[in-house]
């Protein structure tokens, strides 16, 4: 099945200049974990997820820690989060974006999302955002589909 039949044709996106505090507000209000970042023409230039924001608000050494219980106390986290709130999305967004075309198969998209630990990814037509795919929607679709030969 082609991804255009499963994708969410929603164009909600941020611009590179959107501040992180505004991005958090939009993510919350739209109840999504991540959003594409687009230029004035709707071309996808990045992707930002709540995970990227959390990471940016944690100290640099956090990457080296294996266990999240080492997260510094709440006060420090809040202070850093507020500090980066005025930064533009472009500062921390993923610039190498994994995106799909409407003709891609649902299996290909699902496997790519799983392999790259992604929950959501943009669908583009000539580089322009036309929708998003959600891993959960794909899982549901694959679960309901007839069994097919294994994906190589």
């Amino acid at each position: 099945m082609r991804i255009c039949e499963v994708m969410d044709r929603d164009l909600t996106a941020l611009s590179a200049e959107t501040t992180l505090s505004e991005a958090i507000e939009i993510l919350t209000r739209h109840r999504v974990s991540g959003l594409p970042v687009v230029d004035g023409a709707g071309r996808v230039v990045g992707f930002i997820s709540e995970k990227d924001i959390v990471k940016a608000a944690l100290p640099g050494y956090f990457d080296y820690l294996q266990d999240p219980s080492f997260i510094p106390d709440y006060g420090q986290f809040q202070k850093r989060l507020k500090k980066i709130g005025k930064d533009p999305v472009s500062k921390i967004m993923a610039k190498e974006v994994i995106s799909f075309s409407e003709e891609d198969s649902d299996f290909y998209v699902a496997i790519t999302l799983i392999r790259n630990h992604l929950k959501r990814a943009p669908v583009v037509r000539d580089g322009i955002l036309v929708g998003v795919v959600n891993r959960a929607d794909l899982l549901e679709r694959i679960m309901l589909e007839e069994e097919s030969p294994s994906f190589a």
């Binding site: 969410d8 044709r9 929603d10 164009l11 909600t12 739209h30 109840r31």
Partner: peptide, 19 residues
């Protein structure tokens, strides 16, 4: 949410601002 959901199921492209 309900409005968006129905539009989504109808495969209509949406770009609403949630307030």
């Amino acid at each position: 949410e309900y409005v968006r959901d129905v539009l989504r199921k109808a495969q209509i492209t949406t770009n609403f601002l949630h307030v």
